[in-house]
Write a protein that binds this DNA or RNA. Structure first.
Lengths: 224, 224, 224, 224
DNA sequence: AATTAATCGAGACGGTACGTCCGGTCTTTTA
DNA sequence: TAAAAGACCGGACGTACCGTCTCGATTAATT
């Protein structure tokens, strides 16, 4: 991923960007986000402070770029199996937040950027939008296959998934294991309320009813 | 709520605790969590720095106590109506995180405490446990009433609720409105996967079946 | 001498003032004025930078106070012998500037303060005025004794003395020895032009016209 | 004057030397010596930093060359009138130091060069030697004419002149006016002590003899 | 006229020090 | 006699320059 928070030149970053971002991740793992200082990163990277400040406007931007390199947001491959694709999507999300640095830093970043709208927008764009779009594509495939309701609210699905995962990791400390992944997948495969708002406003009788009894069997059938 | 992070004397805090916590909330609202400094709070409260340090071991603890005063964790009243009680619980959670200070500070607090296990435990205890227990009580009432499956995983329910709400507030910026509340309520009323782990491992036919038809029926009455 | 450049409180300086000023002089001797940094002084004194900045507004002020402690400006004792007192005065001045730190730092200080009128005024006051007044007192004693012309320009005398000494030390590098001292003393004992301006403005016949014979006689005559 | 501190090639400086030295003087006047930075000069001259560093080893050398261009050190014309020539010499010196940049920079330069013997030597050579030799020539003419004692110490004369002028300009802030010039001229025309050291050590004819034996006793008598 | 070497502008780089702010401890003063 | 006030040491902040360095883009002189 290009350095989306680096703000220097079109070149996209200093020659020593790899060392700097690597050092940032090292310090992050060793000390935690709050204890991460630009000076420590510069020292660990064997770089002058000014090289960092020349290219990144703030600690937030630097950490964002450092984490962006290890944040998974790739496309969900078309497996022909909706359940498998959903599981892939959930696993990707869990992967991202199982990393303690990520779990601790992303909310801190978002919180810290609440008053920097431009950076916050870039943060959301680079971290969330790509991943969300890729997951949404998989969800739409599921809809096309008839495995998911065609009025599925893909945004809410992702808020539930990522929210639950981050919240567990950060607040309750509960494990992010296969069981959780499986339940989050099924939540989408079988849960009527996860639909687009307009549909909620005028709820038809048929579509939810179709979902509830059938889904387990239906989804299983689709790849086969 | 008593001062759970104040660690000085049995008295539970300095004479000027109200001013200090009030000043902390003011500074928090005005400047944000990252910009909150002990010095600024001391100055705003008309208090010496040492008075704060005497009673709170860190900025995190101070903010935690300040927020604890406005964090809703009261019991869910027994309304005789499971759906209404669930809605009450969700609304309480939304209330908590609709406050920008809370949404920004709690994850930052949790992230900052990841390396301070004792404080983190107290933080989870005071912020989450009471609220979760109260909500769990309401959920159990729903189970007793037969509106919710008796193997409902109350922890997962709350992770999904709070996670989705915090994530929206902090990461996607999506609104926390009545529509969201309603969907989160229905997610629990109708969604089979939100059950206790052991039940998932050996999914019987009965228990889910009881869930699906019954609650939908009860709840279904409103839209239908 | 009190800390004339320290600008904190009436107390007149930090507890560690002696260490700080001592460290400043050490660094000054070892590294020179240009290489003296506040950080180096703080480190050498075992003190935080902020302690220095709290009490001294600038490097200039700190160095001024450090040098003020070793700058000789004491009263010239009444020896009953004008020549001896003048020699005492010149020796004192030479003492001050023979110190390389002083010779290098005072002009640099003055140069650096040219755009800080308030500090420059205090600098002149504390360094020059006291010394000049004490020397002027000795010169006036010489006038009273009849050894010096009663219209002697005491300011010019001191400008010539100190100027010559500093210039030698700094610019030409010529030695500041007993011979120089003796000649500077005699320059005043025997030189007619070193008189107050008003006398110059209205030159009387004899003394200005042919300077050499008259003044010597005048000086010689006065005691006789 | 050639660029005596430029140390690059035999060519004697970069193509843009005039702009660079001009910019240096501009910055010097506008900001003062301490605030003069190579970067500021480069920017003001529209030149890359490396062009300056290629040709001048330090800020001191650059400033020295910049000031050398406006430092008066020309020959004193033979006016046939010793007093007029001395006045010319003194006026030239006053001219040089009436310039605030010069007054502030030369001592700072000298102070800064105290630990760079080679540059200090070149500095003294280029700034002082030429001027001093030209003035010494005028003084020797005065000696030949019989207006000045033939054992006049031309170095001391010049130390007294320049020292007094610089000291006034920098330390006391007293004016450098025609009155001062006139008095400095007469000091030399009429003052016996301004003679060569050897003569003092072995006092010859009239003037020293009168001086040496008498004064101590003479002065001592006055109080008694 | 083309080639080549020096010089230039621009500015990134690893650093040092700046002067400010705040953390957390400790001492003094006040009520 | 507790708490206010705030001095203190330490250390990170973000900025400004340092002096070195690489990089094309002129220039100028040599072929």
């Amino acid at each position: 991923m290009a350095l989306v928070f680096s703000s220097g030149s079109p070149a996209g970053g200093p020659r020593s960007a790899p060392q700097i971002l690597g050092a940032a991740r090292e310090v992050l793992s060793a000390q935690g986000y709050a204890a991460l200082t630009i000076e420590a990163v510069a020292a660990a990277a064997g770089v002058g402070k000014s090289t960092i400040y020349r290219w990144w406007p703030s600690k937030e931007a630097l950490v964002a770029d450092a984490l962006a390199e290890i944040f998974r947001a790739e496309e969900i491959p078309d497996l022909g199996d909706t359940r498998a694709e959903l599981r892939h999507a959930v696993d990707m999300t869990i992967d991202n937040y199982a990393n303690e640095d990520m779990a601790a830093s992303l909310p801190a970043l978002a919180a810290g950027l609440l008053h920097h709208p431009e950076l916050l927008a870039r943060f959301r764009e680079s971290f969330l939008s790509r991943k969300r779009e890729n997951i949404a594509a998989a969800l739409r495939r599921g809809v096309r296959r008839g495995d998911l309701p065609d009025d599925l609210d893909t945004d809410l699905v992702q808020d539930v998934w990522a929210g639950t995962i981050v919240y567990r990791r950060l607040m309750t400390g509960a494990p992010l294991d296969a069981d959780l992944a499986e339940r989050l997948v099924r939540l989408v495969l079988h849960s009527p309320p996860l639909r687009a708002p307009r549909e909620e406003a005028a709820p038809g009788g048929a579509s939810p009813s179709r979902l509830d009894p059938a889904p387990e069997g239906k989804v299983r059938r689709s790849p086969g």
